[in-house]
């Protein structure tokens, strides 16, 4: 049986990708960001899964306003890094895992989650930056990745509770797949940041810290938080944090082992948060 071994949480700031791609990781500004991932790169080498289920949001790349899915699962065999306006990032093609993706789709749709099934999709920084942070600059990503895109751009966006329950359904789906795969689930985006308007640049360190504590210790309670609290306290783009609840919901009910925790302000406009939780 397949099982979820660990979950990884990280911000996915585009400037981090640019800094990596342009060889700026040694600059003092960026050094502070990347130092938080030294441990993680080693950890991933030591704990390479068979598949990564990567939860992220599309940033006006694969989906235009013509059609916005709440939840979209990538079932293709590969996904090309997108040109988001700066030219495509020089990173490897993302290989998918069509069989497991189709199995998860089948299982969670039966559990009343109304996924959009995607067979072709360019993937943007929301997906590739976390891979870069965790893997550096390899010639190929270390394992197949199932992209899972969540609408956190156009309201109404799904509630934290819905996301958390979706995570639980994904857990069940993975557990019913009869290949002995080790699967990691990554939740990306956040933490506090606001990119728009006169309140741009908002950061709430205290709130972020409490979010991390609650995510570890009592995610079911954290999942009850309303949209407005995310927006008010963590900025308009802080809403991306609901995606972390999908990854957390997919973990077992036992308290997880905290393998790594990191927090740093700023990377560009954003408070960078990062956690690695292992199932016990």
């Amino acid at each position: 049986m397949a099982r979820i071994t660990a979950s990884v949480y990280t911000s996915h700031v585009p400037a981090i990708g640019a800094a990596l791609d342009l060889g700026k990781t040694g600059e003092p500004y960026w050094q502070k960001v990347f130092s938080g991932y030294d441990f993680s790169r080693q950890w991933l080498r030591d704990n390479t899964p068979d598949v990564i289920f990567l939860v992220y949001n599309d940033h006006a790349t694969a989906f235009s306003l013509e059609m916005i899915p709440t939840f979209a699962i990538g079932c293709a065999a590969e996904f090309q890094p997108a040109d988001e306006g700066w030219g495509p990032r020089p990173v490897p093609v993302v290989k998918g895992h069509p069989e497991l993706a189709a199995h998860i789709a089948q299982s969670v749709i039966q559990d009343d989650f109304d996924l959009t099934i995607v067979n072709r999709m360019p993937v943007d920084h929301g997906l590739t930056v976390p891979l870069s942070l965790m893997c550096g600059q390899p010639a190929a990503w270390p394992c197949p990745v199932i992209p899972f895109a969540v609408n956190v751009v156009q309201y109404p966006v799904p509630s934290g509770r819905r996301c958390y329950n979706l995570g639980r359904a994904i857990r069940k789906a993975v557990a019913s797949y009869d290949q002995p795969l080790k699967v990691q689930i990554w939740g990306t985006g956040g933490m506090s940041h606001q990119l728009q308007g006169p309140r741009a640049g908002l950061i709430n360190r205290e709130w972020d810290s409490a979010f991390l504590d609650r995510l570890i210790a009592d995610p079911a309670d954290l999942a009850q938080m309303s949209h407005i609290e995310y927006v008010r306290e963590a900025g308009s783009e802080g809403i991306e944090l609901v995606m972390w609840l999908i990854a957390r919901g997919a973990m077992s009910d036992n308290p997880p082992r905290v393998a790594h925790r990191f927090y740093h302000v700023p990377a560009s406009n954003t408070a960078v948060g990062h956690l690695i939780l292992e199932n016990t």
Binding site: H59, A60, V153, L195, G201, N269
Partner: peptide, 20 residues
């Protein structure tokens, strides 16, 4: 929307931080 508008910034060679 800021994620869409960012494409204008990208066209001008601007970062998110400059736009913000």
């Amino acid at each position: 929307n800021i994620y869409f508008l960012a494409k204008i910034g990208a066209t001008d060679g601007k970062s998110f931080q400059q736009m913000a």
